[in-house]
Amino acid sequence: MTLYFLNFVLLIIGLYALVVKRHIVKKILGVAIMEYAVNLFLILLGFRKSGIAPILTEDMDLATFIHTAVDPLPQALVLTSIVIGLGTLALMVAMAIRLYERYGTFDMDEINRLRG
């Protein structure tokens, strides 16, 4: 419960950076923080008290494994979303560098003003 709330605070910090800050790289960092928070929230939802990782080893009994393993489904979704987050981060960094080259600044308001 408090874990969920702390996680939500993390998401809100990212949202704050995305909305208020004017530096483009700060906005990118805000998006990255929000991504961390969402990934962690999905994994927290799948955790089981005194659970073990959903990986079977040879000395393990299958019946007890089924009743102690944590939820593998959110892990599978998060695993792909982390790598896709890296792809979108590369896209955003490319955009930021491109904007800097064109306008000579990272300031969002300044860029809006220069664009006219």
Partner: peptide
């Protein structure tokens, strides 16, 4: 945190991806 939550797959992925995204962001700044 992922490691303590019983998700070693994601812990490995997060470490490796974090290194690459740090390199990209340092390239940008």
């Amino acid at each position: 945190a992922f490691l303590f939550l019983g998700a070693p797959d994601i812990a490995i992925t997060q470490v490796i991806v974090e290194i690459l995204s740090l390199i990209l962001l340092i390239r940008a700044t």
